[in-house]
Design a protein around this nucleic acid. Structure first.
Lengths: 329, 329
DNA sequence: TCCATTTGTTTGAACGATCCAATACTGCCT
DNA sequence: AGGCAGTATTGGATCGTTCAAACAAATGGA
């Protein structure tokens, strides 16, 4: 190896000053065509890469985006987080950003971690995944003027910050419409208790699709905590009552339970999230566009960080999920 | 906010020089007790945190560990990678390290990425997850003297680098012994084709446990590609032949398939990896100690990076997985 | 008493990039 | 020819930390 290649090495090789090399990289318009070519050639030849630490020390920006990775298997975790993370990493790289992970136990602890990360690493931005009602984290970040994006809408609260989310209602609506098109008329819904933004939203899509098709949704829904057992019990209950021929569920866990219910005739079931479980048991499920969501998060952040705040482009992105058809429905 | 707190701020506040503050942090034994107390108090009061970029520029070390996150849902990905990542992040933090993600398409591309990451970010080390026969990556890293640990043994190749792995044979052996203790005598095994280190290793545990209990394993095994359909077919095949009363499988996918096989009498099935799928369908499965594995990776790396190479402690860690008992076996 | 040794602390320089202000070089107008 | 605006390039200072070496004070032995 020829030792470290610094901006000085390049400058010497291209017969220009350090500053000119820096300009070629950061303000190309200031440099004459011919000079720029010479410098770029030298960079190529020497395999020069700007040292981030030095750049960061001067500019105060690290080109690092932090994402929390959670311990438990709930929320986005345990099923689709890795796909989201992969999407983030892949989208961030071409924009010159990298993803750094951190953990935290509880919101207060997470805020302490922010402080630490910001002071030690000069992080440029955060991506938050599991936002909830009255989230102290978004408040703190906003107060401290730290750029961030949430994957998930700020349910209830005014949306003062950029966010990306998946239109759950559109997903359950598509699932319901698909079942209607297949001839089903009594389509049930198994979802979570009223009050969770995500849960209410997914229920809404089913309800709207039923009404739009002039079908009566009354008596066809159950709201329970997430889980296979709960799904099974609810399905059993619905089948004994209103007798649906198909079920739309707010999660794959509920859907899996529904599939287990004893029914006279086969019941079509559609889950939500397209987790590995759905793939394994060939469950039709509403799949979130995770790669696209991640790319949108990066794009919003990049826009924020590059100071495009004045541009009128939207700070919010709502993406459509799509039904992944398998054997169950 | 009182602006940035640097080492100079602390030095001034504690009435000492910058270097003394630095010594308190990096070489405490050089500083007198009383002075150290004064400096630590100042650090506490001011909320000082060392700036990593500046430290990195001087020392050439970033305290950053890179991990590749893969796109596809195979290998460690898609099921347990997020738990491993969480473990890494959690174990790294107290040791003063952070986890950075990167992606790559293929080994060659990954090596190019190493070059990039090392030059731009001065990464301290890498953790590789899906090692395979004749892995070009380990060779490259070793040649360039980059510290790294693999999660997975270097099957076949001489183990010139530190690694952490889970003893698959011990896992299938425990599963087999458990079935034997439950009264089973004809216990089958469904695994992957001969030639994959991990697959052969998992098969070995079943085989050894059978022999140790004086049970004849002949005719009781099938080797097929991974997948639910393959698992089902193999199970069906075995049941029609040697007629096992229990099955040990090399993966949860195979086990799920095996559960689907039509059998006269109920067949006990044990899978491998304790994926979300196993949890969802209540499949007994051999669970890998992922948090512990991750912690071991960090420990080995920290040892490498802190220059403890002379110490005679082992460079290899083999951890025991354990059967997570559920309804299926 | 004096020098050698140890212990504790301070000073100046350096890491590699960018920002700033000053300078050299154009071409153009009067 | 001289002046002037605009462009291209230069050297020096700077970010916050650690390294290397110098310095000061305390200790110990002959």
């Amino acid at each position: 190896m020829s030792g470290k290649v610094t901006i000085a090495t390049v400058a010497h090789h291209a017969q220009v000053s350090r500053q000119t090399v820096s300009n070629v990289l950061n303000s190309p318009h200031l440099v004459r065509e011919e000079t720029r070519g010479r410098v770029l050639a030298a960079i190529e030849t020497l395999g020069y890469r700007a040292n981030q630490a030095a750049r960061q020390m001067r500019t105060g920006r690290s080109r690092l985006i932090a994402v929390r990775i959670e311990p438990a298997n709930d929320g986005i975790n345990g099923s689709i987080l890795d796909r989201f993370l992969h999407g983030l990493t892949e989208a961030a790289a071409p924009a010159g950003y990298r993803i750094m992970l951190y953990t935290a136990t509880g919101d207060d602890n997470e805020i302490a971690t922010y402080d630490d990360l910001l002071a030690s690493y000069d992080l440029d931005a955060f991506v938050l995944t599991s936002t909830h009602h009255g989230d102290a984290r978004t408040t703190w970040l906003a107060e401290h003027d730290i750029p961030f994006v949430t994957f998930g809408r700020p349910w209830g609260a005014p949306d003062r910050h950029p966010w990306v989310d998946v239109d759950g209602a559109a997903g359950t609506a598509e699932a319901t419409e698909r079942l209607i098109a297949a001839g089903h008329r009594r389509i049930g819904f198994i979802g979570w208790p009223t009050g969770s933004g995500v849960g209410d939203n997914r229920r809404e899509g089913w309800y709207a699709a039923m009404r739009a098709a002039d079908l009566d949704p009354s008596g066809l829904e159950r709201r329970v905590d997430d889980g296979v057992a709960e799904g099974r019990r609810s399905a059993q209950d619905l089948l004994a009552g209103a007798g649906p021929t198909a079920l739309v569920c707010a999660s794959d866990s509920l859907a899996l339970g529904a599939l287990r219910a004893d029914a006279r005739a086969p019941v079509a079931v559609i889950g939500f999230d397209d987790t590995p479980v759905a793939q394994a048991i060939s469950l039709t499920s509403v799949g979130q566009p995770l790669a696209e969501s991640a790319a949108s998060c990066v794009e919003l952040l990049a826009r924020l960080l590059d100071g495009d705040t004045h541009s009128g482009r939207p700070q919010h992105v709502l993406l459509r999920p799509h039904v992944v058809v398998r054997d169950s429905g």
